[in-house]
């Protein structure tokens, strides 16, 4: 059994998720073949050198692949899938993975399963466990191979560098007439807020409802000596600046305390904070998925809890 893994990388470093996918392929006894798309063969080789646990690497080199280009990457992954006929194509559930897995599934006529948190091989059937409805349910799908999976970051632990660099075989892919180009990479500006290094974080979610109540949250954060943070909807609604977003497309944090209120615990939020030392979650819905990850939880209205907690913390000083 062979898995073809789309290897994401940035600034010359392969992403942690690629190593996780390699480990997942090994966990079902499969060979791990990486697909590395980069600007030139030298870059492919340098990246392949970081994939010690992989069995082989297919390289595609083109100027358009210097950074992630959805059109070029989809063509490369489709071509590699058609040429090498792996039993399983694996991508991370990342921006690139969301572009690629469903797109290549249609182009190659394969079935796919997304939001995958675990794989088990049962004869010729691959059982894929997925997290659906924002973590409120889990699904088990029996997929006949060949197929495609998009795997949640952090689903398994990454393998270390066990072997030497895998052998690289370069592949020619027709990338003429691309219909998009990347014109600029944007990095977040430095604003003095540093969630990644914060020791304590108080995070509020969509339930905050607007900026009218934000003072209640600021008071908790101040009384606790914590940085205030928000889930993605809080930032998208403009209630807090982007530097305060925790999660998949925000900052990844690992504070000693992550206190959270009105956050459901969607996988994209967990991706940014699940490794915090102590997680305490307040949510009015007893079925909120966050209670599966938090160390302590309370089913409680955050608008009652926040002032009560501020008072306790202030009185306790």
């Amino acid at each position: 059994m062979r898995c073809l893994i789309f290897v994401e990388h940035s600034d010359g470093t392969v992403s942690e998720s690629a190593l996780e996918l390699g480990a997942m392929a090994k966990s079902i006894g499969a060979e791990a073949v990486g697909l590395i798309c980069a600007a030139d063969p030298g870059a492919v080789n340098a990246l392949a050198g970081q994939l010690g646990s992989f069995d082989a690497v297919i390289g595609v080199a083109d100027d358009s692949l210097a950074t992630y280009n959805p059109d070029a990457a989809a063509r490369a992954l489709t071509a590699a899938t058609e040429a090498h006929k792996p039993d399983l194509v694996m991508t991370s559930y990342s921006a690139a993975g969301v572009d690629l897995a469903p797109n290549v599934a249609i182009r190659t006529g394969r079935q796919m399963v997304g939001y995958v948190s675990g794989l088990e091989l049962d004869g010729d059937t691959l059982n894929a466990m997925s997290t659906v409805y924002s973590g409120k349910l889990v699904a088990r799908t029996g997929m006949d191979l060949p197929g495609i999976v998009a795997v949640m970051p952090g689903a398994v632990k990454a393998d270390g560098l066990s072997g030497g660099a895998p052998a690289v075989e370069m592949m020619d892919v027709d990338l003429s007439g691309l219909r998009m180009r990347v014109t600029e990479t944007l990095v977040p500006e430095n604003t003095g807020v540093n969630l990644a290094d914060a020791e304590k974080i108080f995070c509020v979610g969509r339930a905050l409802g607007g900026t009218e109540k934000i003072e209640l949250a600021e008071n908790v954060a101040a009384a606790l000596g914590a940085e205030l943070a928000g889930s993605r909807p809080v930032i998208d609604a403009g209630w807090m600046p982007k530097v305060r977003q925790v999660g998949k497309s925000g900052t990844k944090v690992k504070p000693r305390l992550y206190l959270m209120a009105g956050v459901s615990g969607a996988p994209e939020h967990l991706e940014g904070m699940a490794n915090s030392e102590l997680i305490i979650a307040i949510n009015s819905d007893e079925q909120a998925p966050i209670f599966g990850t938090a160390h302590y939880g309370a089913v409680c209205d955050m608008f009652e809890l926040m002032p009560a907690l501020t008072e306790r913390l202030t009185a306790g000083k």
Binding site: T131, V132, R140, G142, M143, P289, A294, Y296, G297, A308
Partner: peptide, 21 residues
């Protein structure tokens, strides 16, 4: 080929009970 389940959160949070206070 898909079966759905409510996740087992028994290994999850220790729940704090009572009112907000």
């Amino acid at each position: 080929a898909t079966e759905l389940e409510v996740p087992d959160t028994s290994g999850g949070a220790e729940m704090l009970t009572g009112d907000a206070e």
